[in-house]
C-alpha cells in the first residue's frame, strides 16, 4: 500500500537525532509490547509479513506521529482481534478497569 511507512526519499522530517548511550527500551510498556508481540506471534496464526502489513495500516497521520512500539501495539491489537484472541470491547473495558484501579491507588 502507498502508506506513510514508505518514506524513502521523502523530505522534511528534520535532523537525525541519535541518543547517546541509548537503552534498549525506553519504558516498561515497550518491553511488554515487544515481548507480547513475540509470544503471540509464536502461535503461528499470522506471519511476519502479515505483522508488517498490520502496522502499515495505521493512518498516515498517526503513523508519522507515533513511536515504533506504538506501531507494534497497533499491529498486535489488530491481529489479536482479527484472529479472535480478544475483542475491542474487552480491551477497552479492561483499560477502564485498570485506569480506575490506578486512580484509586493514587487517592
Amino acid at each position: 500500500m502507498n502508506g506513510a511507512h514508505d518514506v524513502g526519499g521523502m523530505h522534511g522530517f528534520g535532523p537525525i537525532d541519535p541518543e547517546v548511550d541509548e537503552p534498549v527500551f525506553h519504558a516498561e510498556w515497550e518491553r511488554r509490547c515487544f515481548a507480547l508481540s513475540v509470544a503471540m506471534g509464536a502461535y503461528g496464526s499470522w506471519n511476519l509479513d502479515m505483522s508488517r502489513y498490520a502496522r502499515e495500516t495505521l493512518p498516515p497521520g498517526d503513523y508519522l506521529t507515533t513511536s515504533y512500539y506504538e506501531h507494534w501495539l497497533h499491529g498486535l491489537q489488530r491481529q489479536l482481534v482479527e484472529h479472535d484472541f480478544l475483542s475491542y470491547d474487552e480491551i477497552e473495558q479492561r483499560m477502564r478497569t485498570l485506569q480506575q484501579a490506578s486512580d484509586h491507588a493514587e487517592t
Binding site: W29, L36, L73, L76, Q77, L80, R94, L98, S102
Partner: peptide, 15 residues
Amino acid sequence: LSDTELRVRALESLL
C-alpha cells in the same frame, strides 16, 4: 498512565 500504557497493560492482563 497514557492510553498506550493502559492498552499494553490491558492486553497483557487479558492474555
